[in-house]
Design a binder for these strands. Structure first.
Length: 294
DNA sequence: CACTTGACCTGTCCGC
DNA sequence: TGCGGACAGGTCAAGT
């Protein structure tokens, strides 16, 4: 799925495209993809105006002037794609590659006052959108336990990150940085890219890494994700921006992810794909070595 | 507690 | 060409 940079890119698209619009109605194609208490949809969504598009970790929060919010997690294959209306037509890119909507992956469709639409497409149906009172958003289990925002600029970030990751001393570092309670937003792409940048083997135990090295890994994650947001995120297969266009982080900047068989940009060795923490993992075997003697 | 594994789904790709 | 298995950007519920 989309990881932090992709979700942030979608958030920015939504801020431009749907903030200010009143919702006219909602069409639910897959009930599990849209969760709302009975009556709430008619009372607090239909007729309500979108007032903000926020993000926490990989979760999108769309606030309405009814005191309710739409909360969305795209998981692996979710997309939020906007179609129609003047704002869209004005900045409408020509390389939008979702032909016609709704299609067979469409799970939910929101219609706005000017007949423009926001489609929630999700091939694998892992993603969800919930409608709930804005003040209860922070009580969602996932948001209660999620770690600090890496791009917040919070001066306490490093300290909190170190405290959190030391709880995972016994596991491999890739599993630790993928753990959303340690730090928010890192997924499989940026885990691999960050560990390559910090010259660390993903299967290194956290306990074998110094605080200095762990800070280096966090720094790398921040740099890599910041850069990705600047290029509109990574597009592999399913992720696209809210306006339907692809991000080009992967082709422009990725050093190891999905690049097995090609040369490491740092040392020229062949990048290999291995399995770590149950996930496909890309490394340069020369730049990223396991500590000796363990 | 914390670690690992399978489950949730659909689709695609690869080897036989 | 068909078929089975592995795998895909995430998270959670179970096991141990």
């Amino acid at each position: 799925m989309p990881e932090l940079p992709e979700v942030e890119t979608v958030r920015r698209g939504l801020a431009r495209l749907i903030v200010g619009r009143p919702v006219l109605d909602v069409k639910v194609y897959n009930p599990k993809s849209f969760q709302a208490s009975s009556g709430d949809t008619q009372a607090f969504l239909v007729g309500a105006r979108v007032v903000a598009a926020r993000r926490r970790a990989k979760v999108l929060i769309i606030d309405l002037d009814s005191g309710y919010s739409l909360v969305a997690h795209l998981k692996m294959t979710g997309q939020l794609v906007f179609r129609g209306g003047e704002a869209w037509a004005a900045g409408h890119p020509t390389d939008s590659f979702v032909a016609e909507l709704p299609d067979r992956s469409t799970r939910v469709e929101f219609r706005f006052d000017d007949d423009s639409r926001l489609f929630f497409n999700d091939q694998r149906k892992f993603g969800w959108i919930k409608l709930l009172p804005t003040i209860e958003v922070e009580n969602i289990d996932f948001l209660k336990k999620v770690g600090p925002e890496p791009l917040s600029g919070d001066p306490k970030l490093v300290q909190v990150f170190l405290k959190n990751i030391r709880r995972r001393n016994n596991t491999v570092v890739k599993a630790a940085i993928l753990d959303q309670t340690v730090v928010a937003g890192i997924g499989n792409i940026y885990a691999d890219e960050s560990l390559w940048a910090a010259r660390t083997h993903p299967a290194t135990r956290v306990r074998d890494l110094s605080d200095i090295k762990l800070r280096q890994i966090l720094r790398a994650a921040i740099e890599v994700m910041t850069r990705s947001i600047e290029s509109g995120g990574s597009t592999m297969k399913n992720y696209i921006r809210a306006d339907g266009t692809k991000g080009d982080y992967l082709e422009k900047f990725a050093k190891v992810f999905r690049r097995e068989g090609r040369a490491c940009p740092r040392c020229g060795s062949e990048i290999v794909k291995i399995r770590v923490a149950g996930r496909g993992t890309h490394i340069c075997p020369r730049c990223q070595k396991l500590p000796a003697g363990i």
